[in-house]
Computed example of a mutant assay.
Amino acid sequence: MGRYFCETCKLFDDDTSKRQYHCGGCGICRIGGEENFFHCSKCGCCYSIILKNSHPCIEGAMHHDCPICFEYLFESRNDVTVLRCGHTLHRNCLKEMQEHYQYTCPICSKSVCDMSKVWEKFDAEIAAAPMPESYRNEKVWILCNDCGTSSEVQFHIFAQKCPSCKSYNTRQTRGR
Rank of each mutant, 00 (worst) to 15 (best):
Y4F: 15
C6G: 04
C9I: 03
L11D: 06
L11M: 13
F12A: 12
S17H: 11
K18C: 10
R19Y: 07
Y21G: 04
H22F: 12
C23D: 00
G24E: 15
G25M: 04
G27A: 03
R30C: 14
I31L: 08
I31N: 13
N36E: 11
F38I: 04
H39M: 01
C40R: 03
C43G: 07
C43R: 04
C46Y: 01
I50L: 12
L51G: 03
K52S: 05
K52C: 02
K52Q: 12
P56N: 11
C57V: 08
G60W: 04
G60F: 05
G60V: 04
M62E: 07
H64G: 12
H64T: 14
H64C: 15
D65R: 05
F70W: 12
E71V: 14
Y72V: 11
Y72A: 01
L73Q: 08
L73H: 07
F74H: 08
R77N: 14
R77G: 15
R77C: 09
R77E: 14
N78E: 15
V80A: 06
V82A: 08
C85Q: 07
G86H: 00
T88L: 04
T88Q: 04
T88F: 01
H90G: 07
N92M: 09
M97P: 03
H100I: 00
Q102L: 13
Q102Y: 02
T104V: 15
T104W: 02
P106R: 06
P106W: 06
I107D: 00
S109G: 00
S109K: 15
K110W: 01
D114T: 09
S116D: 12
S116R: 15
K121S: 11
K121D: 10
F122K: 08
F122Y: 15
F122L: 15
A124R: 14
P130G: 02
M131K: 03
M131G: 00
E133R: 10
E133N: 07
E133D: 12
